[in-house]
Design a protein around this nucleic acid. Structure first.
Lengths: 252, 252
DNA sequence: ATAAACCTTTACGCAACGTAAAGGTCAAGA
DNA sequence: TCTTGACCTTTACGTTGCGTAAAGGTTTAT
């Protein structure tokens, strides 16, 4: 497939000017120039543009992108690692800023005065290491799950609303788990409600439902440490409780 | 408390030049100018700078920030609440990008080849449509699974070798599925071998194993369209066959 | 008294394009 | 066939949000 500037632009979401600029600085040259002087891009160029956009998303400068894509594989890996670290820092910084926002709100509402230098926590990029130590694993675990959720949602081509609804349901399951766990009884009304909500939540990604599959999933939660870690996050033994609640709900 | 340019700059993490620039464009004027022409900032200015930095963090242009904070009905507390939500969104986006970076790194290290277009799923919004036509659903599903695999590997702190081994096992399961399916009999020796290999593969991520959980997972494969699509990729009905083979292997 | 560390304004530079301006090309419809 | 409108080209200046001198005045600490 061959593309002119405008076609490639529309496909990739960048502007025609951008493509000409990339040509100009030597970042992405068209495959050839036709007899009228038009830029013609081919498959290879499409792929490379995708590469470029990928790095651009990571806030890599065009100059650096040029270096990266012109170098062999292991160099690229190093670059990626560097970017990953940068992203991590960025994330930690965001967390700090969010904390500052919360604190500022609290200070306004509570009438508690805030120290001036506190107001800028997070904008300065110093205390990142501390943050890592403080949140460390927790965030990573959550991060893993978020990733899975996001990819699943995308996978199924869910609309924004659907995804939001599903997420909300997921949170509700979690809340219910805490409440039901507090009763200590997997046959309690709360536990039953929990199992129901869990089924409801499941239906967002399942096309067919069977008691066996639901029960099996519950067993798997206990067996697979990843799921176990997730459901045990708030209350220890939460995973087993959830399984029991589900099995009970299903009459098994 | 009163601050000169440099003091405020150090406290807030921005540069002196930035403060002068903000004065120049009228975004943040000092409280007063002293007898030597120095800019002197007071309490009000400190708070306003904080506001400005919050907006800047959200990629709002300075011009827009000016409009926003000069609006008559501007309520600081409301604005702060809005900031918090937007920051959360930004963080979620960062998480997604980080996941892709990690996945890319994993693919380089694990020697698992990745399709270029796979690498960039999720980054572009528009290109997806076209890609869809080209490669259809298949890639999305694979991407989803890869993501899960990668994040799992990370989560469990797997070594590269282990991850590679697991990936290889996963492929073997797939090959066996094709071979066993060809026999048409879920009780055949090939089917039994398939179930065994599947269990072996599972053990990479399971800490405890039970027949019930294994059987449940098999049921889930059929119920969840994502898994179904994955195992049906090569042979239609492969998922059901796998389930039957497993159930048979487990004597259920 | 002198150096270090401030402060000032003016002014040019930068990345990654956006936005004309001035003109050539191409497919489709009257 | 001719015209229209959507393409394409190059050249070139504008934009944002500062960084970075340069050239000089002020304050503070020793």
């Amino acid at each position: 497939m061959e593309y002119t500037v405008q076609k490639l632009a529309r496909m990739s979401g960048v502007s025609g000017r951008t493509l000409r600029y990339y040509d100009q600085i030597g970042l992405l040259k068209p495959a050839r120039i036709n007899s009228s002087g038009y830029r013609i891009y081919g498959q290879k160029e499409v792929d490379q543009l995708q590469q470029i956009l990928f790095y651009r998303e990571l806030d890599v400068s065009l100059e650096d992108i040029m270096e990266i894509i012109n170098q062999p594989g292991f160099e690229r890996r190093e670059a990626l690692r560097g970017h990953f670290d940068k992203l991590k820092e960025k994330r930690a910084r965001l967390d700090k800023i969010m904390a500052t926002v919360e604190k500022t709100i609290a200070s306004i509402e509570g009438g508690v005065p805030m120290q001036d230098n506190e107001k800028f926590e997070g904008f300065k990029e110093k205390l990142i290491e501390d943050n890592e130590k403080q949140y460390g694993k927790e965030i990573r675990e959550k991060y893993g799950d978020d990733t899975v959720d996001a990819s699943n949602a995308k996978l199924r081509g869910m609309s924004q609303e659907e995804y939001a609804a599903m997420t909300k349901l997921g949170e509700e399951v979690f809340e219910l788990l805490e409440k039901a766990y507090a009763t200590g009884d997997p046959t309690s009304p709360e536990a039953k409600q929990l199992a129901e909500k869990h089924k409801e939540w499941l239906m967002y990604s399942w096309t067919s439902y069977s008691k066996e599959a639901h029960a099996g999933l519950a067993e798997m939660y206990v067996a697979d440490e990843r799921f176990k870690a997730y459901y045990d996050k708030e209350v220890d033994g939460g995973t087993e409780f959830l399984r029991d609640a589900i099995l009970n709900y299903l009459g098994m």
